[in-house]
Amino acid sequence: METLTEIIRFINFSFSYSGSNSPILKNINLLIEEGDFVLLVGPSGCGKSTLLRCINGLIPHLYNGVYEGEVIVDGEPVKNKSVNELATKVGFVFQNPENQIFMFSVEKDIVFGLENIGLDKTEIDDRLSWVLRALDIEHLRYKPPYELSDGQKQRVAIAGVLAMKPKILILDEPTSLLDPRTALEFISLLKELNRKFGLTIIAVEHRIDLLTNVANRMVVMDKGEIVFNGCLKDVIENKNLNLHGVNVPPVIALQNYLRNEGFIFDAFYLNVKEFSKEIKRRLLEID
């Protein structure tokens, strides 16, 4: 295994929006390594969205408030970095892609960000053809946003930030508006970006069953604090997850019940196929 390098670090970090007297984030300590795929969950209003906005510098550059401690992205504190520089390090895909596509064609929307960071024509040409190919949206190149389906809009939103060649991709509930199949396709795209390009991904998602097979880290937040943080397999078997508003997938909940009853499994099975295989194997053994 390659040596892992730190990409994001929160050190004793707290934040409260100006005008609010209670902090939305309390004493956050979190380390994320390059190439991690982090699933971030927690009940609504727990501070997930705020945490994400601290990574790409919207906080403190766009929102004011009491900022304590440090957030370090790619070796440097966020608050010392210019927004411009952060935009090329951290890509942010918002819940509603509609509000993220500004231009009247997919191509022009991708070019928008590249012009903003002052790239020349040949560099823009290169990145444009690369990103269209990487996301498999070459056929959408000249389409206006209102001719795109919801799933396509989500891909275009990713294309717009991916063209900036960020090291980190942040997604705030990216599949909540998508139908089940489109959501699955979208998640496998994320997996590919993570594996193929080594992109660090942080995704907030309520339907965690979609991500249990692709993420390797899981962070659970509640009331502005991190309550669980670690390898996904270790975090997800915690019995108290649903008390923190987490939608525990049925196959996980099932294994928790069985463990309570004294059935010990070698591993924690994240998908139904593996779990069923194990059950069948046991039945054969008993036979």
Binding site: D179, P180, R181, T182, L184, D209, P249, P250, V251, L254, V272, K273, F275, S276, K277, I279, K280, L283
Partner: peptide
């Protein structure tokens, strides 16, 4: 219709006829 299966139906698929 572009719909995926609930996990408990998947479980049934895998374990049927058990």
């Amino acid at each position: 219709c572009g719909i995926t299966k609930p996990q408990l139906v998947e479980l049934y698929d895998e374990l049927y006829p058990l």
